[in-house]
C-alpha cells in the first residue's frame, strides 16, 4: 500500500512540487474512508480539509428547501474536493457526499495554509493548481448553464 506522499506524487496537482514540498504537504495528510451516502463535508461547515480522492466517488450537492437534493458534479479517483479550504472564511459551500465506498487523503487545511504561508513557492504551486481546477469547474458550470443538450442534432 502506498504512503500518503506516494499517493500525492501520482497526481498532476502535485507534479510540480519538489520532494521536500511533497514531504511537507504529506505530513498534513491522513487517510479517511467513507461509506455510501456518508457525508464527507457539509455546507456551512468549517472547511477543515482538502480532500484528494484515492478511490470512489463523491457527489457535490446542494439542498433545495422544496425541490430536494441537487447533484451539481461528481468527483472521482484522482480528483480534488473541498476548495473552500483556501478561501476565507473557510466555510464549505456545498455538501460532499460519498456515493460508494470512498477513500480520500484528507489534508488538514490549517496545516497546509500554515505551510503555504511559510513557503510562498509552495503556496504559489498550491494556488496555481487550485486555480486551474477551479477555473475548469467554473467553465464547466457555465457550459451546464447553457443547457447544451437542448438543441436539435
Amino acid at each position: 500500500m502506498k504512503n500518503i506522499k506516494e499517493v500525492l506524487s501520482d497526481l498532476s496537482f502535485f507534479s510540480d512540487m519538489s520532494d521536500e514540498m511533497l514531504e511537507f504537504i504529506a505530513a498534513c495528510g491522513q487517510n479517511m474512508h467513507f461509506s455510501p451516502d456518508e457525508y464527507v463535508g457539509r455546507e456551512s461547515g468549517s472547511a477543515d480539509y482538502l480532500f484528494v480522492i484515492t478511490k470512489g466517488n463523491i457527489a457535490v450537492q446542494l439542498e433545495h428547501p422544496t425541490k430536494g437534493t441537487f447533484t451539481i458534479r461528481s468527483l472521482h479517483d484522482g480528483e480534488i474536493a473541498g476548495f473552500s479550504w483556501i478561501i476565507p472564511p473557510y466555510r464549505m459551500q456545498f455538501d460532499l457526499k460519498a456515493r460508494e465506498h470512498t477513500s480520500v487523503v484528507a489534508l488538514d487545511a490549517g496545516c497546509v495554509r500554515k505551510k503555504c504561508e511559510e513557503d510562498h513557492h509552495l503556496g504559489y504551486l498550491m494556488m496555481k493548481q487550485s486555480a486551474i481546477i477551479m477555473n475548469k469547474r467554473l467553465e464547466d458550470t457555465r457550459v451546464q448553464l447553457m443547457d447544451i443538450y437542448s438543441g436539435r442534432v
Binding site: N57, A59, V60, G68, T69, F70, T71, I72, R73, S74, H76, R99, E100, D140, V143, Q144, D147, I148, Y149
Partner: peptide, 16 residues
Amino acid sequence: DHAFPSWRGNVGVVTH
C-alpha cells in the same frame, strides 16, 4: 447535467 438524488453515475458536462 442534472440528476435525481438516487443517481449514482457521473454528473457534469460531457467534456469532463
